[in-house]
């Protein structure tokens, strides 16, 4: 289902139409869930954020400009909710505890979701080691295929900043990838 078809349903859903809600949820939940799961690694947190994304979606539908892509609007909301959550988490947990937790979470996630499928996703685990500022650019660029200008618009930062973060992220990935899996290509 494309943007144009979804819009009337979304409007109906904000007016309280249950079946419209189901339809909108079915059409969008995997995308929202995956976007959040690429940026946040704790299962409980991911679910909290997805729930908040939908709340924000109903509440701010009146702000949506129908001339723009629905997908862009939805991803904007998703990224902002993730950022809000990160800000709150930063205040909640002290830096050193946070770092410890993040390492645990990474193993947790990798074990269950990725290794289970018996796939070697080295690059992905490297993306997860990047700072949030860098990884969000990578996800929006390579998972959602947004242009750097669009990413700048969505994150509300200058294009130059996006370009340098994109560049830095790729540099880091190349460097680390070369150190681990990249050996196979050399020899």
């Amino acid at each position: 289902m494309n943007d144009k078809e979804l819009l009337p349903w979304l409007e109906k859903a904000t007016l309280g139409d249950e079946s419209a809600f189901q339809l909108v949820y079915q059409a969008t939940h995997q995308d929202v869930y995956r976007t959040v799961a690429f940026l946040v690694y704790n299962k409980q947190d991911i679910e909290d954020i997805v729930n908040e994304v939908y709340m924000r979606m109903w509440r701010s539908f009146h702000n949506y400009d129908p001339n723009r892509s629905f997908r862009f609007w939805l991803h904007g909301i998703t990224v902002r909710q993730v950022q809000d959550w990160k800000r709150k988490a930063w205040r909640r947990i002290r830096l050193f505890e946070r770092n410890r937790q993040m390492t645990c979470e990474q193993f947790d996630w990798t074990d269950k979701a990725v290794l289970q499928s018996e796939m070697q996703l080295e690059l992905l685990s490297l993306v997860r080691q990047l700072s949030y500022k860098l990884s969000v650019v990578v996800i929006l660029r390579y998972f959602h295929d947004y242009a750097l200008e669009e990413i700048a618009d969505m994150l509300q930062i200058p294009v130059g900043t996006v370009k340098s973060r994109h560049h830095l992220a790729l540099k880091e990935l190349r460097k680390r990838f070369g150190m681990t899996g990249g050996d196979a290509y050399v020899h």
């Binding site: 949820y25 869930y33 679910e47 499928s117 992905l124 993306v127």
Partner: peptide
């Protein structure tokens, strides 16, 4: 990167019980 993210995304499934929660809110 594109390929790995796509593969990883395909293995990520939104838990079905999340529907109930979103529905409630």
């Amino acid at each position: 990167l594109r390929e790995e993210l796509r593969q990883a995304a395909d293995s990520m499934h939104c838990p079905p019980d999340l529907y109930e929660r979103v529905h409630q809110s």
